[in-house]
Amino acid sequence: MSKKNISQHSASNEGKQISKIDRRWIFLFILLGVSIPLLIPFGFEIEVTPNVKMVYDLVNSAHPGDRILLSFDYDPASKPEIQPAAEAMIQHAIDKDLKIVAIALWPMGVSLMNEIYEKKSDNLNYGVNFINLGYTAGGMVAIQSMGRNFIDVFPRDANGDDVRNFDIMRDVRNFNDFSFVASFSSGTPGMREWIMVAGDSYGLPVTGSTTAVSTPGFLPYINEQRQLIGLIGGLKAAAEYEKLVGIPGTATAGMDAQSIAHLIIIIFIIIGNVAWYLNKHKSKKEA
């Protein structure tokens, strides 16, 4: 047997040793680790990170009566991570008396946006401080068109009514009539397209929320050129925003579960490494 084959054989043996723990045990521990904190919250302290504070400051810097654009670019798969951030930002906008123009670049974003509207409808007056313009196809090109003439892309709201009949849409021509855009994004089209077109081409401040797994890809845009102004990345960041707004929601509730799940994964990684090291030591001795 060649040296290469021997090393492959030994690596595969080690692999077999590591995989000796039935994966169902791991699944069981994760299940318990996630469900127990959801039933009995531990209330771990949540620290606010600079990226989330930047988003909060941007919303805070808008003046009462200013118009903001919220784009719902996600579907139910990412709802547990992104919806809490959207809810917290809408609550913040209500507290600041901002006017919310909601659109969706993903077809299913409309229903998710509507769910939040139903929840907060007591504080939202349709057509006055909130409007749901529904979904538009076209992604990046649609954003480009909105920058030229917003009403051309959204002549009617999600219910089919002429948008010019609503107070909130009067005088809206293009991106100059909005304070900023926040994209709640879990893929393409989403936040990247908003940065490239609305931010870089039209100078509209862009912020938003994304899933934890997508967050590293957006960090380069948070730079001195302010391509992206802060980021609510994943459930932890959504919990931080909830803390800033002062209304703990589903993200805060989920943070304990996420913390314990991460800890369990780390414990299993340590177990895997110890098992691998012991096996390696044993096979060396036998050789």
Binding site: A11, S19, R23, F27, I265, I269, I271, G272, N273, W276
Partner: peptide, 16 residues
């Protein structure tokens, strides 16, 4: 994904 990531991390994250 959380369950599969936990299982995959246990097998893949080895200090080889």
């Amino acid at each position: 994904l959380a369950f599969f990531i936990a299982s995959a991390a246990y097998r893949a994250f080895i200090a080889r």
